[in-house]
Each structure stands twice: as C-alpha cells, then as structure tokens.
C-alpha cells in the first residue's frame, strides 16, 4: 500500500517539474512581451523595467530564480497588476474558486451517483430512459450556453436569483454558477454509475447478499455501491479538469472574482508570471486529485491495497 502510493508520488513530482519547465520556456521564447503595448516607453525606462523584473538576464538564470521562488510559494510580481504579487492575487481569488469548484464537484457526485443508481434499478423503464435522455443533453450543452440561459430564466425573467455579481458571504450568487458548473460532470457520472451499477447488480456477490435476506437498502449501499463507484473514481480527475475549465467561463460570465478570471485576463494581457502561477496551481491540484483517486481506488478495492 505505502509502496504503491510512494510510486505514484514519485511520478507526480517529475511531472510537475516538467510542466513548470515547459510552460516557462514556452512563454519566454514566444514573441511579444508584457510591456509591448505601452509603445511610448523610453528605452532607459524599458531597460529599468526589464531589470526590475529580471528580464535582462539569460533565460536559464531566470528559470533558476523562478524555480527557487516557486519552491517557496512565491510566483513573483504580476506584470499587469503592478501592485500585487501573483501569490497575493491567487490567494485572493482561490477561496471563491475553491468554494465554487468543491460545491460543483459535490453536487455532481451526489446527483450523478443518485441518478445513475436510480436509473440502474429501473433499467429500461420510463424513469431510466428519461434520466438517460436528460444525461445526453446535460453532457452536450456547453457551460457557456447553460449559465447565460439559466441567468436569463431565473435572473432576468423569474427574478429569483441574481443574474451576476458577487457579495462576500452571500450564497445567492453562487447558486446558478454551481448549477451550470456541476451539470456536465453530473451527467457523465450518472451514465458511468448506471452502466457499472447494472453490471454489479447482476453479479454473483449481489445475488449472495440478497440470498442472505439483507434489506434492499443494505444490498445496494454495502454490497453494490462501492464496487459500482470504481469507474466514477476513475473519472474524478477528468471531472476536476472539466470543472476547472468550466470555471474559466463561469467566473467570467457570473463576474465572480475567482482565479479562473485571472487566467483568462492573464492570457489576454500576456501576464507571464500570472499565467505561469495559474498553470502551476491548476496542475498541482490535478496531480493531487490523481493521488487522491489512487487512495480512493485502494479504499474501494482491497485487491489494489494488497498489490505490492
């Protein structure tokens, strides 16, 4: 178990390093710098600016400095938001994005697993067909169509919820973004759960559990659900990636000051350090998720735990 986990961890660190290297050099070799738009910049000021940000040094020296700083959690100053460091910007936006992402992930998991189990238990009945037709639609409708549509219906026409915006401590602004973000992964999870649940319900060990006279609830919860969730666990990392991707548009549309907006703004502004910091944060989260998924696999299937 520990060796299994250590092996996964040993692969995660070089991956992160490779990402850092790749992104850093991609950005730095690209034409166009962050100060190019400000044409009126006199040469000496430009030189001072470059020196201040370390842009006058050889690339590999810059990379070395960058790595050293990142190791300390310092992503350097933002090129565009001059008064802030990238770390400060991320720290400001992160709680909002994390709240959004975790709520959406929780909703997608609970809703998807419940819908998938429901459909599997009513295989080929009307409820199953309806749920799966809804899932096809849920997978298809893009987040950036869904959220404005929800805002139009619930915000503009029904006026139940705010169209966009944000107030600290108010959950009303979160409802529609979380819904829009959760729906596509929810649909995928419900399909995955349904397929694997149908297989598990037909298995010999579920038949044994029923032969023991256990209640249907005990059969489903204790014997059927954990193995049926293995494919869902395999989808967790892609689901997180989907939610992160979705958060870029959701935060932009809903006007939530999370980190998703910084990535888009940073990309549009060619704010190297900001974008780099963001990619590192997102990649780290995904790699962490990968490790968590490995743990969940071990939890759901003892055979994984005992594999050396």
């Amino acid at each position: 178990m520990m060796r299994y986990f250590a092996a996964r961890l040993a692969w995660a660190l070089p991956t992160l390093f490779a990402i850092l290297t790749l992104t850093f050099f991609l950005v730095r070799t690209a034409p166009g710098g962050p100060f190019d738009e400000e044409r009126a910049l006199p040469p000496d000021i430009r030189r001072n600016l470059d020196a201040a940000y370390g842009l006058d040094q050889p690339l590999w020296v810059q990379f070395g400095h960058y790595l050293a700083r990142v190791a300390h959690g310092d992503f350097g100053p933002s090129f565009k938001y001059r008064d802030f460091s990238v770390t400060e910007l991320i720290a400001q936006g992160f709680p909002i994005s994390a709240g959004l992402g975790i709520s959406a992930m929780a909703l997608a998991l609970v809703g998807g697993i419940a819908a998938g189990t429901f459909a599997a238990l009513r295989r080929r009945e009307a409820g199953d067909r309806l749920a799966m037709a809804a899932a096809v639609l849920g997978i298809t409708v893009p987040t950036f169509v869904l959220l404005p549509f929800l805002a139009l219906v619930f915000g503009v026409y029904l006026k139940w919820l705010p169209v966009a915006g944000w107030e600290p401590g108010s959950l009303r602004y979160f409802v529609l973004p979380v819904l829009a973000l959760a729906l596509p992964p929810l649909a995928v999870i419900s399909r995955l759960t349904r397929a694997s649940m149908i297989e598990v319900l037909d298995s010999d060990y579920v038949r044994t559990a029923r032969a023991k006279g256990l209640s249907p609830a005990a059969v489903i919860w204790r014997h059927a659900l954990p193995p049926a969730l293995i494919p869902v666990a395999g989808y967790l990392a892609p689901a997180l990636a989907a939610i992160m991707t979705g958060s870029l548009v959701v935060e932009s549309i809903a006007g939530l000051p999370g980190i998703g907006r910084y990535l888009v703004q940073g990309a549009l502004n060619r704010d190297y350090t900001l974008v780099l910091g963001m990619v590192v944060v997102y990649s780290t989260l995904l790699i962490l998720m990968g490790l968590i998924v490995d743990l969940i696999f071990a939890l759901l299937d003892p055979r994984v735990r005992f594999r050396a």
Partner: peptide, 20 residues
C-alpha cells in the same frame, strides 16, 4: 498517461496567447 492528466486546455490557452 502523463499528458492526459494535465490541464491541456490551459496549454492551448497559452499557445493561442503566445503565437497570437
């Protein structure tokens, strides 16, 4: 396996910005 574990969409965003 490694590539598919990465947030590739962010790299594309990157690329579109770098090359215009």
């Amino acid at each position: 396996e490694t590539l598919s574990g990465l947030p590739l969409i962010f790299f594309v965003i990157f690329l579109t910005v770098i090359v215009g």
